[in-house]
Design a protein around this nucleic acid. Structure first.
Length: 511
RNA sequence: GCGCCUCUAGCUCAAUUGGCAGAGCAUCGGACUCUUAAUCCGCAGGUUCUGGGUUCAAGUCCCAGGGGGCGUACCA
């Protein structure tokens, strides 16, 4: 919103209404008792937040002479006989309606509005004797009635299931939900703008993949009838985005909904949103700087500061974040001096000592990762970049320039959770083909999440992928971090749930 | 997947040892000219998640199923 005038920002420029909103001819028609005719459009010229901003400093009992029009739902009503007090809520907040019998049109009807009804109100901005900023209606109209009773005006909805299923109600009665879901939208918007300012372009790549690849996860499958083709919903957009880098999009990103057929938890929804970006001529150290700057920027925009508390623990997101290799961190937290060159059986022995179930196809790299996850990962709070993952568990990452057997890959741990995964991209088609073959061998050995072979991607690499840094950020988890949400369902508008068994009950009929 | 917990009016919650299923808010009717979850009076509102079982008697105990939550496993 760039409009500088708060009182015109919401008026449609095409409006030609001379008799704007109210009319007194809204009597229910006799054929349909109880029916309320509602207008096709309605002009507002302010919001509750703007009114507070402009007039909160008004003295008790003062009047402004300023007439405004706002709209929203009636959330509370206090009927005082010859005065009715209401509370109108819109997308920005709440304001009191002060409606004396003398000045309020259709006063009786006004007092009979249901909590939850949408109304548009025009009136003077005043402050009551008791000091509550209010609108004294000179005209009002019903914009929609609610046929179902709203939840308890004080307790709201407490049942999480109902909150997620009927988000359209939750958003009105739960301030936290409202704030968090709006913050999500804002984080997405700020992220786009921040990247575009750095000359990244946004793209949309296919959701249907004939090969589920680009991540280690089990996919959803579906079917195209006309093509007679089984397809997977994507588990990552990675390989398509790198094709675009081959194609000359040097800085590219996608905010991608991805789908993984795995368990549901407070940190996992089957569909979630991942920001992936690819940056030609950059390596993983450039990506680390990008991540810490982006996250610190978003923290300041959303919370006002780089320091915040999450789960009652402090966190400082200011750049730079600590960088430490996986092997260093294992030594630091578990006192184990490991190396990627160590004998496989020796590593397997150490892993077993720590209670890890070692499978036959685990090589040294997988064993080091398992030991890290068992002994070290849960100890990390962050923000920290955990770098230099083993090649064996990083089939798309480029081998480390000085440490063979490791890759230039990192994950960021923030508030004890993985926030992102990134690397210097593997650019050599022969090497990539060999890594895919390794993955196929792992799949044959029983790993259901091993990555699928994508020969067209190999062909793309054969045309030449320049040095490129790539990144994936779990945006839902980022939103959780910045809003303090402890379950992913609070940051997803409509989280995946089983369907309601008994169907949806009919609205209570008025008789 | 597995383990533990939970489900009562539109919403939030009670119901003693197994003994008539209740309250507040919302709705509906009434009173009230500065309220702040207004207050006061009144009416109405129920397949106690579903199906079995034990019992003279089940919201309560038992079995099976369903929804949800948390933990755990896989993962971001």
């Amino acid at each position: 919103m760039t409009d500088s005038s708060p009182c015109t920002a919401y008026v449609s420029s095409t409006s030609e209404m001379s008799e704007p909103h109210m009319s007194d001819q809204e009597e229910p028609s006799p054929e349909t008792p109880g029916a309320v005719e509602v207008p096709y459009r309605f002009d507002v010229d302010s919001t509750t937040a703007k009114l507070h901003e402009q007039w909160d400093s008004l003295g008790d009992g003062e009047e402004t002479g300023a007439e405004v029009t706002v709209a929203g739902r009636l959330m509370l009503r206090r009927d005082q006989g010859k005065i009715v007090f209401g509370v109108l809520q819109d997308g920005t907040g709440r304001i009191q309606l002060f409606a004396p019998a003398k000045t309020t049109p259709r006063f009786e009807e006004f007092g009979k509005l249901s909590l939850g009804d949408w109304i548009g109100v025009t009136g003077e901005v005043i402050k009551t004797r008791r000091g509550e900023l209010s609108i004294r209606p000179s005209a009002w109209t019903v914009l929609a009635t609610t046929r179902r009773p709203f939840p308890d005006k004080w307790h709201g909805i407490s049942d999480p299931d109902t909150r997620y299923r009927q988000r359209y109600v939750d958003m009105w009665v739960s301030e936290d939900s409202n704030r968090t879901l709006r913050a999500r939208s804002r984080i997405m918007s700020l992220t786009r703008r921040w990247l575009e300012d750095r000359e990244f372009i946004e793209v949309e790549t296919p959701v249907f993949h004939s090969i589920a690849s680009g991540a280690l996860a089990r996919p959803f499958s579906t079917h195209h009838n006309a093509l007679g083709l089984d397809l997977f919903l994507r588990i990552a957009p990675e390989l398509y985005l790198k094709r675009l880098t081959v194609g000359g999009f040097e800085r590219v990103f996608e905010i991608a909904r991805v789908f993984r057929n795995e368990g549901i938890s407070t940190r996992h929804n089957p569909e979630f949103t991942m920001l992936e970006l690819y940056w030609a001529y950059a390596d993983y150290t450039d990506i680390m700087e990008l991540v810490e700057q982006l996250v610190a920027y978003l923290a300041v925009e959303i919370t006002g500061s780089t320091t915040l508390s999450y789960d009652e623990r402090e966190l400082d997101l200011a750049a730079p974040w600590r960088r430490a290799s996986m092997i260093e961190l294992i030594e630091e937290h578990a006192g184990l001096a490991l190396s990627i060159d160590m004998d496989r059986d020796e590593l397997a022995g150490i892993a077993r000592e720590h209670g890890i179930e070692v499978k036959d196809y685990y090589g040294p790299g997988k064993l080091i990762l398992e030991i890290y996850e068992k002994t070290t990962e849960a100890e990390l709070w962050g923000p920290i970049f955990v770098t230099d993952y083993p090649k064996e568990v990083s089939p798309l990452s480029r081998e480390h320039r000085t440490q063979p057997g490791l890759t230039e890959r990192f994950e960021a741990i923030v508030a004890g959770r993985e926030l992102c995964n990134a690397f210097s991209e593997l650019v050599d088609p022969d090497e990539q083909l060999a890594r895919f073959h390794d993955q196929e061998a792992e799949r044959a050995a029983g790993d259901a999440e091993a990555m699928g072979m994508d020969l067209d991607y190999i062909r793309a690499l054969e045309y030449g992928l320049p040095p490129t840094g790539g990144l994936g950020i779990g945006m839902d988890r980022l939103v959780m971090l910045l809003t303090g949400a402890t379950t992913i369902r609070d940051v997803v508008l409509f989280p995946t749930l089983r369907p309601e068994q008994d169907g949806v009950a009919e609205a209570p009929s008025e008789s």
